[in-house]
Every structure is written in structure tokens, then in C-alpha cells.
Simulated assay, not measured.
Amino acid sequence: MVAAGVSVADTEAATAAIPRDPNNPSCPRTLDWSTYREMRFTLFEFEARRILKAEGMIDADAALRLRDALKQYDPIDEIWLRSPGGDARVGNQAGMLIRKAGIPTRIPPGWACFSACNFIFMGGPIRFIDDGGNFVVHMFTHLADKDAVHAEVSQGADKAAALIGDVEQDSAMLASEDNDFLIKMGVSRKLLTEVMYKQKAVASGGDKSTRRCLTGQEAVKYNVANAQ
């Protein structure tokens, strides 16, 4: 949160002074999004509040473990997020669980919530991005495993065409699901069209940028953060 007497301009000037990623200049050089290979859910108490930390990769069973954690640790006052993303559809499922439970979400100072983590965060009916917290977006891709793509393409035109068809179909479905999710969560769909979908899916050529960190003003503009 912005401290009393400190303007948004002052806060964003301080953020800009942090060393930047040369390939993704909207983001800090280092993003703390946890290295756990499976998302972990742990409870701790902070300022008389019960906080559930959600940290690490969003794996196939993350939503199931979140469901169990919500039951085990009830009541929970907030969920804090730190993740490099992972399974996009599981991220949506986890976000829906949080919305149903009515628990606020937060990205604390220095923590980063990237990719599928965005959708878990947006599940909170009340959403905080603290000063120094990073809500990091990108254009999703189903072609991240280049070796697998090359293996398919090397088998001939028919295999390549089938792969492209599958990718196009699944991408269209996921884009539709993301759009519906934002509507349900009360987040502007322009977050997709004006920010997420304008990022490059794969770094190539002279422009290596593949992700974008929202400014505080952008987070408010798209209703990603709706509380301070």
C-alpha cells in the first residue's frame, strides 16, 4: 500500500529506480516467484491475520491441494501469491475456488505473480498489489517446448499441419475461457486485448521482450487491484 504522504508518482519513481530487466524493461531484473516445482500452501499469522501462502509452479494438482488447504486452514484472512505460473486451466480453477471462498488475495512487496498465477490472484474478490509487488503478464503459448515442435515438424507437412491445427484450436478455447473468467471476476477484458495479447509469445529477433509488469496505475485501470 502507498504510505501516507507518498504519492503514486513517488512510488512509481522508486520502482523505476530498481535495476530493470534489459529484455523486459517494464520488469525488475530479478523476479521472486518461487522455485518450488509444485505449488505449496502454508499458513502463518501476520498482524493478527491468518495468511495462506501459495508459492511455486501451478501444477496439475494445485487446485485440488488449494481446495484441501482452504478446508484445513479455515478461516483464512488473505492469500499471498508468489509463482512463475504453470498450468493455465488449473490457474483458472484455483481462482474460481478462491472467489467461491470469498478470500482476498495479495501480491506482497518483492513477490511476483506471473502467467497462470494472474488468474489465481484475480479470483480474490478484494485484491491488493503492494508497493514492489509484481503482477507479470505475457501471451500464453503452447509452443514453449521447441524440441517437441521441431520433432513434429520434421515428420512432414501433414504432421506440421496437424500440430498447428491443434494449437490454434486449443489457443482459441483458452482465450475464450480467459475472457469469461475476467468477466466473472470483474476485471476489464481490455487487460487481455491491450496488454496480455500484445506481448510476444516467444523471444526472437532483436526484440527479446516476452512479458510485462503492470504499473500501479495500470493495475487500477484494469481493475486488477481493487483495494489499497
Rank of each mutant, 00 (worst) to 15 (best):
G56Y: 01
G56C: 07
G56D: 04
I58F: 01
D59H: 12
D61Y: 14
D61F: 08
R65W: 05
R67C: 02
R67V: 04
D68P: 00
D68G: 07
L70E: 12
Q72L: 15
Y73A: 05
Y73M: 05
Y73K: 08
D74I: 01
P75F: 05
P75W: 05
I76Q: 02
I76C: 03
I76S: 00
I76G: 01
D77F: 01
E78F: 14
I79H: 03
W80C: 00
L81N: 05
R82Y: 01
R82M: 13
A88E: 14
R89H: 07
R89P: 02
R89M: 08
V90I: 15
G91P: 05
G91M: 03
N92R: 15
N92V: 15
Q93I: 07
Q93A: 13
A94Q: 00
G95A: 09
G95I: 00
M96I: 14
R99Y: 09
R99I: 06
K100P: 07
K100R: 14
A101R: 05
A101K: 03
G102T: 08
G102C: 09
G102F: 06
T105S: 07
T105K: 03
P108T: 01
W111M: 12
S115V: 07
A116K: 03
A116C: 09
C117P: 08
F119G: 02
F121Q: 04
M122N: 05
G123L: 01
G124F: 03
P125S: 02
R127H: 11
I129S: 02
G132V: 06
F135D: 05
F135A: 08
V136R: 07
V136S: 00
V137G: 02
M139Y: 10
T141Q: 09
T141L: 03
L143P: 04
A144Q: 13
K146Q: 15
K146G: 11
A148Q: 10
H150K: 15
H150D: 11
A151P: 08
V153L: 12
S154Q: 15
G156A: 02
A160P: 13
A161M: 14
L163I: 02
G165E: 11
D166Q: 13
Q169G: 09
Q169K: 13
D170I: 15
D170Q: 15
S171D: 15
S176V: 04
E177D: 15
D178K: 13
D178T: 12
N179L: 12
F181T: 06
F181G: 03
I183N: 10
I183A: 10
M185I: 01
G186N: 07
